[in-house]
Design a protein around this nucleic acid. Structure first.
Lengths: 344, 344
DNA sequence: AACGGTTCTGAAATGCATTTCAAGAGTGAT
DNA sequence: ATCACTCTTGAAATGCATTTCAGAACCGTT
């Protein structure tokens, strides 16, 4: 029934190579339904038959053909995770944050025995996502780190495609988004600055991204009348561009005594630029980064930062998506953030 | 035939919701085979029928049921990428290197229209991988960043499961591995040191990993009689443990005038530890890291490092795997590495 | 011994697309 | 008008597991 693979790591694929449920049924002297029931843990079979069938199946290395199975069932038990690799490829990956999020999602799916189909964000109009559902490839989608693709997502939501998004939470959007409480993140940074007695704050980040804008808003809220706030923005916001922008700024402006950077990478750039202008943290200014990337703790000085709980985030994203797939509804949520105080 | 999804992002799932090829055939007044031929670009159909069928299909948002399709065909056009998330989860992710590799693989698969099933490395004996093949879920595997799982891989190879591995290339192993030319990497670092006139070298890394051992070997080879070589090892080799180990070492040993670190992260730790002992690069010593992580260029001082071509690596891994899946053979290859000279 | 009630098992229908093989339609040649 | 061909098209078989429904086997009752 099954051909022997040869030594060279290469299986001969004769026509009837694979074992089917019918084969197992025949070999075990039972019928297909019985085999099916055994394999699916149905309580309707006798312990004796169960053991016997299991033995035969295992002896022949039989595994249920998942395609036939999925063809018959409504569920595919597969979720597609859409990642924006492209934005990373050229400019390399700035933050390992998305990777951690992916790990969290992968773990949560694995616990539920759901497969993870990974794909890169397509240029697309969303039609390809619809097709994936129609083709019964996946039950739903998790979008990670899409910057600004709202129109497509809105359309997808209208079509009834089950999906969840990691990103800014906006109650007006018709889909379920999960994201850190960015407003709180900004506030936490602000309160920390107040406690340190800082009064001339700077925010580094590009408000074009909803998530970053909210961090900015949180900081503004915390500032109130107690502090002044300047903003440093550049299009790209990589390490290098942040460094340059800050250097330029310091050339003809007074230095801030507190900096809140939208990412730890930007925070490191800020520290370097400030040091070169003679300003040392925490002596001359306080600084808070974002994401708590592994290296933030190792940097000299160790960076005070806002942590987003990636593991929890993955679990919640998956939970919400499953609710949608089960035909329920799921509303957006923000996840708590936490200030991790280090040297800066 | 198709129900309207309602406003709430939630499709009603009535029994006969989905459109099948038979439906399209009926609606287009042709037979199933004709629809199938149209959708698969067969040249056997008239241009007129082709257009008509395509129009009907698109009008009804029809997409071929991939499960039925895969059930019929021998190929699944899906590859499983196995990643060692677990090693990252607890201790967070040290290097973004694996992520870049993943991006390279994802891109290469996407070009070939092959789906990517992402999974975390299981404790497993390899049985689960065999089952994935038997269950016709995937055609083969790509293992990324497995440290030491050779016995399992050897077994898998003997079973004829198509797979490729990113890692140390050992011609004695019965499977196809793709990896950087670590020996060359070590040599490049050594030659660089020689050119700088350095004579008292240090290698930082744990030889338990085959890849790292080869970098060590390459360095040793370059040293020849021209330089002395000490080795600094710790079990874990994170930033912190590397930093501590080097600090301890410097307390009662003379400082090296050249350091080759197995990773850029370790290189940063080394720079910090050395600086605190009063040794500044490149004034007092030369340093070469590994992987060219994005931050290596941004660090102060900018780190000289060895680059592994992740994008190319992804493409090669995929190419080799496809050869195996097509029933051919594939032998292991090493990919060129490149020294990127920066400040250190 | 006969009946009602449980348990367990199997035959057949079902989900959907691909492929083989044969037949139909159309063209040109004789 | 007929034969030989080439193009297109369709009926039916196939791949495999799940589910429904009916039947078999067995138990305890009366």
């Amino acid at each position: 029934m099954v051909d022997q693979p040869d030594q060279n790591g290469r299986a001969k694929r004769s026509r009837s190579m694979s074992v089917s449920m019918a084969d197992i049924a025949r070999l075990a002297n039972v019928s297909k339904p019985t085999v099916s029931r055994v394999l699916n843990g149905s309580p309707l079979v006798t312990e004796a038959t169960r053991k016997h069938v299991l033995a035969v199946a295992s002896e022949h290395g039989y595994a249920v053909n998942r395609n036939a199975q999925k063809l018959r069932q409504t569920r595919t038990d597969t979720v597609q995770v859409v990642l924006d690799f492209a934005s990373h490829r050229g400019g390399r990956i700035a933050d390992p944050f998305i990777f951690e999020l992916l790990a969290g999602v992968a773990e949560a799916l694995s616990v539920r025995n759901v497969d993870l189909l990974l794909s890169s964000a397509r240029k697309g109009d969303g039609r390809s996502y619809q097709d994936q559902i129609a083709a019964r490839v996946v039950d739903g989608f998790i979008f990670l780190g899409q910057g600004e693709r709202d129109p497509m997502l809105r359309k997808l939501a209208k079509l009834g495609v089950p999906f969840v998004v990691w990103g800014a939470v906006d109650p007006d959007e018709p889909y379920c988004a999960v994201g850190s409480d960015n407003l709180l993140g900004g506030e936490l940074a602000g309160r920390y600055f107040l406690k340190q007695g800082r009064r001339r704050w700077m925010f580094i980040g590009n408000d074009a991204h909803a998530e970053i804008r909210m961090r900015h808003d949180g900081l503004t809220k915390a500032a109130g009348d107690a502090a002044t706030l300047t903003t440093l923005t550049s299009e790209e916001m990589s390490y290098v561009s942040t460094y340059r922008a800050l250097k330029d700024h310091l050339a003809d402006h007074p230095a801030p005594d507190a900096i809140f950077a939208f990412s730890d990478t930007a925070a490191m750039a800020a520290i370097t630029a400030m040091r070169e202008a003679g300003h040392i943290a925490p002596r001359d200014y306080s600084l808070v980064g974002y994401n708590n990337i592994p290296f933030a703790a190792d940097f000299t000085p160790a960076i005070t930062t806002i942590e987003q709980e990636t593991h929890l985030a993955g679990a919640i994203l998956v939970e919400k998506l499953m609710q949608l797939i089960d035909g329920g509804r799921a509303n957006s949520t923000t996840l708590p953030t936490r200030l991790i105080v280090r040297e800066t």
